[in-house]
């Protein structure tokens, strides 16, 4: 079943339930721990795996085509701004990878748009979007076309 939860590690906190885009991580009423209720609607997106504080969730490739004995583990660390992966093949080969997930302290560089100067009447009339034309980094401003050149049909 794509993702599954280890009984001894899960404490039922519900982070995985909260994040799963497929709504398939649910808390089991008897065991009070998480369970993937619909493995055939799991994308192996690892959102739940990354969100679990107890590292209680693992993945076992889809039974349709994935022989047993492999693993792909992940640790996502917002404070460090990194994500680390460990891939283990069925034959024991192991590969490790680490990538950055952000270049700024988490979320700090994202603006609160309401605090920016409001648009002028001219901005409203123009084709410009927020921060344009400056954010395009071009001297000639936002590109335009002359409608009298438009043609209909097959010709290019």
């Amino acid at each position: 079943m794509p993702t599954f939860v280890y009984m001894t590690r899960c404490d039922g906190c519900g982070h995985c339930v909260d994040i799963c885009p497929s709504d398939i991580m649910h808390i089991d009423k008897t065991y009070r721990r998480a369970v993937n209720i619909e493995p055939n609607m799991c994308w192996e997106c690892y959102s739940c795996v990354k969100a679990c504080p107890q590292n209680a969730i693992d993945d076992r490739g889809y039974a349709d085509f994935a022989p047993l004995g492999h693993s792909v583990r992940v640790r996502r660390e917002e404070e460090k701004g990194t994500i680390s992966w460990r891939i283990k093949f069925r034959n024991g080969t192991q590969k490790d990878f680490v990538s950055p997930i952000t270049t700024k302290p988490w979320g700090s560089a994202i603006p609160t748009v309401a605090d920016l100067p409001p648009p002028t009447a001219e901005d409203v009339e123009s084709q410009h979007l927020l921060y344009e034309p400056e954010a395009l980094n071009v001297e000639d401003g936002l590109p335009e076309r002359d409608p009298s050149t438009f043609k209909q049909g097959v010709y290019y």
């Binding site: 490739g61 693993s71 792909v72 992940v74 590969k95």
Partner: peptide
């Protein structure tokens, strides 16, 4: 090649690990 999957289609890395496709 590997990070490309891990960053957007982890499932492919799982397939290759399980089928010993290096």
């Amino acid at each position: 090649g590997w990070e490309n999957f891990l960053g957007m289609t982890v499932g492919q890395a799982v397939v290759w690990a399980s089928q010993d496709i290096d």
